[in-house]
Design a protein around this nucleic acid. Structure first.
Length: 447
DNA sequence: GTTGAGCGTT
């Protein structure tokens, strides 16, 4: 990698000093990766809510930003991070740590956030047999403070392989939901439990970025938009389609950017709600929406598709540009998808709740089922939403979760073909619907 | 003592 005179072995890390402000008495030394980068997730583990780093240049005395790309913060020079004090960058409108928002007795905004962004217990499925409440707590503390861990046992006291956790803050919860989890070599499924369906109203975390230029990469968008909040996903369709999608951890950040224009690489892009422009009432077909949902399928591919050796960091999951039909929005002609997946994809695209923009009736306006007269019946055709509306899993949209997470297929949220997408589904109705054989569990190779 | 889809003694 670089020429730092470090004799790499597993036990040697470089540490960089990070603080929330230029008073370094509370600075924390954070380990870099062996390639000299610092993972944003490592930073966030120590400074929850942080979305980047900056530092005061010793010569110019001005603040310089640290390059963020693909979830990695890059040192400012070839020589590495040096002895600078690095300062956390927190999202706009929320200079402090997100965690502090709820712990501080500061005002209406606090209440608003607390109300909208409510924690719930999370179920952890597929835990290793050897897990203990302590080990699970320790694992999940990388996402924020863990206030509860319950591992379920039978009458004999033997562990049943699943349990519940709860984070102190919604931000932590979303962080945990935004990735896959490998604990002691097992892929552990973390979800909002069925019994809690409907209790976590969500706004879309994803925004549509229009007027992109061809030279804008996903990394460019991520880097630019990270200054507003933690970005969990970016999708730029290829071949070039002049738009992209950016997903934020915090739906409020996403909402706050809607309607704004931003300049990236010298070009003005427009940010808007990641919902299609409804041109006609007969929008059930895909022919005339202006851009279609993001048929990216870019979430939660199993380890085979990951560029970092199976680490499920969602930042590395922009693996493919599947399903984009260059002829227009919507699925390729050979898509023979169960409608449930179409529905899921809509929500992946940020349609969750069909909010119709910030001015509409808010997160709850999705109650009562989908639009266009499908009253009470969801698009799966095999279950009803009931009075609580669709399950929140519709909106989770992260980490491959929330897809049909009730029964049957895809319940691990993992893609069967190692590509993390739909590329292998060519016609014929093969695919997820009904085929429980071999697809529903990515844990098979494990013991 | 084994096991691997699931949904919580409070």
């Amino acid at each position: 990698m670089n020429n730092r005179n470090v004799n790499y072995n597993e036990d040697i890390f470089d540490y960089i000093k990070v603080s929330e402000d230029e008073d370094d008495t509370n600075a924390v030394e954070i380990p870099c990766e062996h390639d000299g980068t610092l993972l944003l997730s490592t930073l966030v583990a120590q400074f929850p809510g942080a979305c980047g780093l900056k530092y005061r240049h010793p010569e110019t005395k001005s603040i310089r930003g640290i390059r963020l790309s693909d979830g990695k913060l890059h040192p400012p020079s070839e020589a590495g991070w040096g002895k600078n004090l690095y300062l956390c960058v927190f999202p706009k409108e929320n200079k402090r740590k997100m965690e502090d928002v709820s712990s501080e007795n500061s005002a209406a905004k606090t209440k608003r956030l607390e109300k909208k962004l409510t924690c719930s217990d999370l179920i952890c499925l597929g835990l290793p047999w050897k897990s203990t409440e302590e080990s699970i707590k320790q694992y999940f503390e990388q996402f924020g403070e863990v206030v509860m861990v319950q591992l379920k046992k039978d009458k004999n006291g033997s562990f049943k392989g699943f349990g519940f956790i709860r984070f102190a803050t919604y931000a932590s919860q979303m962080r945990a939901l935004a990735q896959r989890h490998n604990i002691d070599g097992r892929w552990v499924d973390v979800r909002i439990p069925n019994s809690k369906e409907g209790v976590v109203p969500q706004m879309p975390c994803k925004v549509f970025v229009g007027r992109c230029t061809e030279d804008m990469t996903a990394d460019d968008l991520r880097e630019y938009f990270s200054k507003f909040g933690e970005v969990t996903d970016v999708f730029v369709p290829r071949p070039f389609r002049a738009f992209g999608f950016v997903t934020f951890l915090d739906p409020e950040v996403a909402q706050s950017l809607c309607g704004e224009d931003h300049v990236i690489k010298g070009a003005s892009v427009s940010v808007s709600s990641a919902a299609p422009k409804i041109k006609s009432k007969s929008n059930q077909n895909w022919k005339d929406d202006s851009y279609g949902p993001n048929w990216d399928g870019n979430r939660s591919g199993p380890s085979g598709g990951s560029s970092n050796g199976g680490n499920s960091n969602i930042d590395t999951l922009n693996m493919q540009n599947l399903g984009i039909n260059p002829n227009g929005g919507g699925p390729p002609a050979n898509f023979n998808l169960p409608i449930s997946l179409v529905a899921a994809a809509l929500n992946q695209a940020g349609w969750g709740g069909f909010l119709g923009g910030p001015g509409s009736s808010g997160p709850n306006n999705w109650q009562g089922g989908p639009p266009q007269g499908n009253s009470g019946k969801n698009w799966n055709g095999n279950q009803n939403w009931g009075q609580n509306g669709p399950p929140p899993s519709w909106n989770q949209g992260q980490g491959g979760q929330g897809w049909n997470n009730g029964k049957g297929n895809w319940n691990q949220g993992n893609w069967p073909n190692g590509q993390g997408g739909w590329g292998g589904n060519s016609g014929g109705g093969s695919g997820p619907a009904g085929s429980s054989s071999g697809w529903s569990n990515n844990n098979k190779p494990q013991t």
